[in-house]
């Protein structure tokens, strides 16, 4: 073994160790944002529909500039977002499952819940509509027909707000869905629409995500809409600073106030894809101004 080779090898090992020492010292990009002059970080845990539809990318830059903040969006199902909030891993939540939101506030995880906006759920399915639900007005009756026909139905199956709504409709229909035709995907809305499209099956979707996916070439159609049971309100909740002293409560509250302000509500109202409105403003401030 020539000594030259050993020397090369030694240098290699030394370089590696040096790099390793340097690695923790070189701050990853995310850490740079935590120093004083840089923007404050706000973690927003939210549902996939607000991010996948493009709404957040449309409105958040305004907040980030006004408050010198950087909003980190963690887009998951409502169930998971509530879990993240309960653990104090986010500063503020924007979700859509009214009954669980009320429980969340009652349990002391958030000081309050504020109305933000609403849209509605729609039942979508293939244009040929094998279960024959097109134009019906009662969502539960339509679900019953789908079950009877044994047509493929793709469920979110992920404890999200949409999943929770779907289960409440099955309950209203007095059906416990099971069998080959009922598929629990365990994925986000976008993925479930793709699965339903590939299988030419039915599913329940929030209107915003469906419109956004339709613009990308999904062949399914809205077959049932307008049932009162399909109302889909979104609420915002700052995480309790009493329970989690580490959360950025001040910025979270500023975010809530900004989100429900008339100016932001107007932006939400103006957000469209292919000329269709996706969300309808519903905050107290907005309603008072009308």
């Amino acid at each position: 073994m020539p000594t030259r080779n050993i020397r090369v090898w030694l240098i290699f090992i030394l370089t590696l160790s040096l790099l390793a020492c340097a690695a923790p010292a070189t701050p990853p990009a995310d850490q740079a944002a935590e120093s004083d002059s840089d923007p404050q970080r706000l973690i927003l845990a939210t549902t996939t529909s607000t991010e996948n539809s493009g709404l957040l990318a449309f409105i958040l830059p305004v907040f980030e500039e006004q408050y010198n903040a950087s909003v980190d969006v963690v887009a998951v199902g409502t169930g998971q977002a509530l879990e993240i909030g309960e653990a104090g891993d986010a500063d503020v939540l924007l979700v859509h499952d009214r009954s669980r939101e009320d429980i969340f506030v009652e349990a002391g995880n958030a000081p309050a819940r504020y109305d933000v906006m609403y849209n509605d759920f729609v039942i979508i399915g293939p244009a040929v509509d094998p279960a024959g639900i097109r134009g019906m007005e009662d969502a539960a009756a339509a679900f019953a027909l789908i079950a009877e026909a044994g047509s493929p139905f793709v469920s979110r199956g992920d404890d999200s707000g949409t999943h929770s709504k779907e289960l409440s409709i099955w309950a209203a229909a007095g059906i416990e869905p099971s069998g080959d035709w009922y598929q629990a995907a365990g994925q986000g809305m976008g993925a479930v629409i793709t699965i339903a499209d590939e299988q030419q099956g039915y599913t329940l979707s929030d209107r915003a995500t469906f419109i956004a996916r339709q613009a990308e070439g999904v062949s399914l159609e809205v077959l049932l809409e307008g049932d009162e049971a399909l109302f889909n309100p979104y609420g915002v909740m700052p995480i309790s600073a009493e329970r989690h002293p580490d959360v950025n409560a001040e910025l979270a509250m500023q975010f809530v106030e900004w989100l429900i302000s008339v100016e932001t509500q107007e932006m939400i109202a103006s957000f469209e894809i292919n000329g269709q409105k996706l969300f309808f403003p519903d905050s107290d401030a907005w309603n008072a101004a009308q």
Partner: peptide
């Protein structure tokens, strides 16, 4: 949890 590293590049590393 006190580090506040969840949802950051450090957590990924």
């Amino acid at each position: 949890g006190d580090l506040g590293w969840l949802f950051s590049l450090r957590a990924m590393v």
